[in-house]
Every structure is written in structure tokens, then in C-alpha cells.
Nucleic acid binder design. Structure first.
Length: 343
DNA sequence: TCTTACGTCGTT
DNA sequence: AACGACGTAAGA
């Protein structure tokens, strides 16, 4: 029962965080339509996320906005999306809320005060703990409006998680330059790309199968980072979230060698009808959610009929016969790994 | 019926 | 090898 209670608490925190983000970001020119695919993503999320239905649409919006190069450049360092990365700082306090307690009087700093922890953190980072309001301006606000984020680690400047969580493929993570924006002015090619490198292991537990299908952003999944126990207990739910997605993932382990009966098995071994191979669903490109909009495939979509280069499955890039069938994809992910919220 | 995207082939 | 175009399988 205790874990359940913890879970509920966690969920409340997340909801608050999301609400905060939504208020502070979605309201400020974040337009889903700027990111065509986001709408679809949002729809998918809404349809496929039984866990947090109310947040699905928001997630969809978030999936797009955070990486837009326009009005969010300043936020990138303190990315709203980082909310879903790494350990969730159990601080659901909106920055504006802090202003309700401009003076960090000892009374407010009591341990029982819901905001006490955040106050400690923000003040710790900027030094001026006494003048809560002032320090906020220089600290939290300067680095973004998501004070509810892991501002915790003392240094609010670099989220320990954001850069290292592997959401940006190493090869493409060219920093914050917007040179890779597409015509619409967004879509860093790597946005939404979930690196398989790094410690984060991409999708964590889920990275393997169902995520790969890409119906759901591999990462959209999950949560309970840090608290392995909770994550495990929710594994089934997370599965639910994505199980309804593409069946592709069902066969991911058989991409090359033994085709999935449902999708690509030739009727008989004799008449090996050439079937289209399917995406493995687990490689970096497969786990990428959106088209870059700038590669030749994206630009040439009308006639090229090719998937975005950044999303082209690594397995499919190989020659069908080659490779000896050695699975390059990571083995099934350790079941005990904590889930993560991320995109 | 429409969209997505794999497979193939010709060109650069 | 990369690219572009096309046919078409597969799924929505």
C-alpha cells in the first residue's frame, strides 16, 4: 500500500509540473500547428495513454514545442521537457507560486511547508537565500520558467539529465544552433530522437519493444525514474500505453532472421515472396519520432516516398541478406531498470 | 481510399 | 555511395 501512496504522490507532482509547463509555455506562442507531426503525436498519445489521459494532449504539445527554435531557444537550457527527464524533482511549485512567498521567512521555510525544499534549492544555487523573490529572478527565471524541475542538483545551470539523457543523438547534438531548423522553423533533426547511446539506455525498460514501434515516443513512456520499485510496479501500465501501437514491435526481434508470422512470413518456404522488411523499432532512428524536415527524404517526400533519413531504421539500411543475422540491437532491456519520463 | 515507407533501379 | 523517382506493400 505504501508504494501505491508514493505513486499517487508522484503522480500529483507530475500533474503539477505538467500544469506548470502548460501554463508557462503553451500559452506563450507554443503552437502545435507549428509542428505538424505533433498533432498526430498528441492524438496518438491521447489515444494510447490510459495512464494519464488528461496529460496526453499536453504531452503532444510538449513534444513539439520544446525544441522549436524560435521562442524557446532560451528555454532549451532549462527545458520544459526536461521535466520528464531524469529524476523528477518532487517540487511541483510553479515559479509564480514562489512569488506568493517573496520573503523566505523562517516560517515559510519550515520543513512541512510544501515549498520549502524548492526554496532551499533555488536559494542554494543563487546564494541569496534570504531574499527568495530576488534570487528567483536571477536564478530560476533566468534559466527558465520551470522551477519545478530538477533545479535541485544545486547547479541549475546544467541539468544533469538533459544533456546526458541521450535524447539527442551524439552525432547530431550540435548544440542549440538552429541551423537545422526545417522550413517551418522547428524540428531540430534530432529532436525527439532518442539516443541509444549514453547511460540512459534510451527508452529504459521499454526501449526495446513496444516503444520502438514508434507509435508512442519511446520515451513518452514512463516515469518513476529513480525509484526503481515504483517503476517496476507500473511496468504493466506502461505496456498498456504502448501495446496498442504498431504491431511492428511485436516482431522486432525477428526483423532479419525469422520474420514475424503476422507481418512478413511468406506463405510457404518455397515461394519466398519478397516482403517488405519492417523497422526494427529499437534503433536510434526508429525511436526518433519526427521527421527532420530538412533531409533529402523529407524534402523529397512527395516523390521520394522515403522515410526521413534520421528515422531510417539501421537494420533496413543494411542489405537484406548481409550481416549474418547478427542482431545488433541491444538485448532485451533489464527488467528492473527504472522508467523515465522523457521524449 | 489515403498515407507511409520499403525495395528497386537509373542517374549523378 | 548517394540521390531521386517510382511501384507498391502495408496499415490507418
Amino acid at each position: 500500500l505504501a508504494p501505491m501512496l508514493d505513486y499517487t504522490t508522484e503522480m500529483d507532482r507530475y500533474r503539477s509540473s505538467i500544469a506548470t509547463f502548460y501554463k508557462t509555455n503553451v500559452n506563450m506562442n507554443m503552437n502545435v500547428t507549428n509542428f505538424p507531426q505533433s498533432a498526430k503525436l498528441a492524438a496518438r498519445l491521447a489515444a494510447a495513454a490510459p495512464i494519464f489521459p488528461p496529460t496526453a494532449a499536453r504531452l503532444g504539445a510538449m513534444a513539439t514545442a520544446p525544441w522549436g527554435c524560435h521562442d524557446n531557444m532560451n528555454m532549451n537550457m532549462n527545458h520544459p521537457a526536461a521535466m520528464f527527464w531524469g529524476r523528477p524533482k518532487p517540487v511541483a511549485t510553479a515559479p509564480t507560486h514562489h512569488h506568493h512567498h517573496p520573503s523566505a521567512t523562517p516560517g515559510h521555510m519550515t520543513s512541512s511547508h510544501p515549498h520549502s525544499s524548492s526554496m532551499h534549492q533555488s536559494s542554494g544555487g543563487s546564494g541569496g537565500g534570504g531574499t527568495g523573490g530576488g534570487s528567483e529572478g536571477g536564478g530560476a527565471e533566468k534559466h527558465g520558467h520551470t522551477a519545478s524541475l530538477p533545479v535541485s542538483q544545486g547547479t541549475a545551470h546544467h541539468h544533469p539529465i538533459a544533456p546526458s539523457n541521450g535524447n539527442f543523438l551524439p552525432g547530431y547534438s550540435g548544440g542549440a544552433d538552429c541551423g537545422v531548423m526545417n522550413k517551418q522553423g522547428h524540428a531540430h533533426p534530432d529532436m525527439m530522437g532518442l539516443s541509444e547511446g549514453g547511460n540512459c539506455n534510451g527508452g529504459g525498460v521499454m526501449s526495446g519493444g513496444f516503444l520502438g514501434g514508434l507509435g508512442l515516443p519511446p520515451g513518452v513512456i514512463v516515469m518513476a525514474m529513480g525509484s526503481a520499485g515504483g517503476g517496476i510496479s507500473d511496468a504493466s501500465s506502461a505496456f498498456q500505453m504502448t501495446s496498442g501501437q504498431r504491431a511492428l514491435t511485436d516482431c522486432q526481434q525477428h526483423t532479419n532472421s525469422s520474420p514475424c508470422p503476422s507481418s512478413s512470413s511468406p506463405s510457404s518456404s518455397g515461394t519466398v515472396a519478397k516482403r517488405k522488411r519492417k523497422r526494427c523499432g529499437v534503433c536510434g532512428p526508429c525511436r526518433r519520432l519526427i521527421n527532420c524536415g530538412v533531409c533529402s527524404s523529407c524534402r523529397n517526400r512527395k516523390t521520394g516516398h522515403q522515410i526521413c533519413k534520421f528515422r531510417k531504421c539501421e537494420e533496413l539500411k543494411k542489405k537484406p541478406g548481409g550481416g549474418g543475422g547478427v542482431l545488433e540491437r541491444p538485448p532485451s532491456v533489464p527488467a528492473g531498470e527504472a522508467f523515465r519520463w522523457f521524449f
